[in-house]
Structure formats: C-alpha cells, structure tokens
C-alpha cells in the first residue's frame, strides 16, 4: 500500500514539474501558442535561409535611355512586320498616314 502511495505521489510530482509554468511566463501563453500553431506551414519553411526580393527601381538616366532605345527599336520592328503583313491598311497609297 505504501509503495502504491509513494508511486502516486512521485507520479504527481513528475507531472507537476513537467507541466509547471516558468515563474514569469504569461498565463495566456497556451492561447498565444494556439494562435500561431496553424501558421507554421510550407511558406515558413521556404522563408528560412532565403532571400526575399522587395526591390525597387532606382532612377538611372543611362538605364532609362537604354530602355527607350530598346523600345524604339522594338516599335520600328513591329511596324515593319505590320507593314509587311497588311500593306494596304498600315501603309496606304494615299491619305495622311503615309510613313
């Protein structure tokens, strides 16, 4: 009988120490944990050790000039293609839109 009592007391002590809160822990810590429990998903794993790009476009006059040049070349290329495809419409023999 003594052995059973001793075992029960010891078990209670062990359970008590295992579930005991830190002296300064917030009593609502369990609620806080439950609020975050569902948020540990694949996105969290992917964010660890990763670089997340939130880059911005800086004002660089040279780059802007180059971009304008590229756009101009591309526009002329598209215009040539359209002229070859539809000569009557895009390049009429009369009228004011004669490039």
């Amino acid at each position: 009988m003594k052995m059973i009592l001793l075992t029960a007391v010891l078990a209670c002590f062990l359970i008590g120490t295992a579930t005991a809160q830190h002296s300064d822990q917030n009593p609502r810590a369990q609620e806080a944990y439950e609020a975050y429990e569902g948020k540990v998903d694949a996105k969290h794993a992917a964010s660890l050790g990763a670089t997340v790009d939130n880059t911005y476009q800086a004002y660089d006059p040279i780059l802007i000039k180059e971009q304008r040049k590229r756009e101009r070349i591309e526009f002329r290329r598209q215009l040539r293609l359209e002229r070859a495809r539809r000569p009557r419409i895009i390049n009429p023999r009369w009228g004011w839109r004669r490039w």
Binding site: T51, V52, D53, N54, T55, Q57
Partner: peptide, 20 residues
C-alpha cells in the same frame, strides 16, 4: 543558430546566401 530570412530592399537582385 538557425538562418532566417534576408529581406532584399535594394534596387538590385542580391543573393544573400553567398554571405550567409
């Protein structure tokens, strides 16, 4: 230690893994 996220807020793509 565990390595977390590096937020690149610059104007270029900079891979932080090179120095982490």
């Amino acid at each position: 230690v565990i390595v977390g996220m590096v937020d690149n807020k610059s104007h270029e793509h900079i891979e932080a893994e090179v120095f982490t």
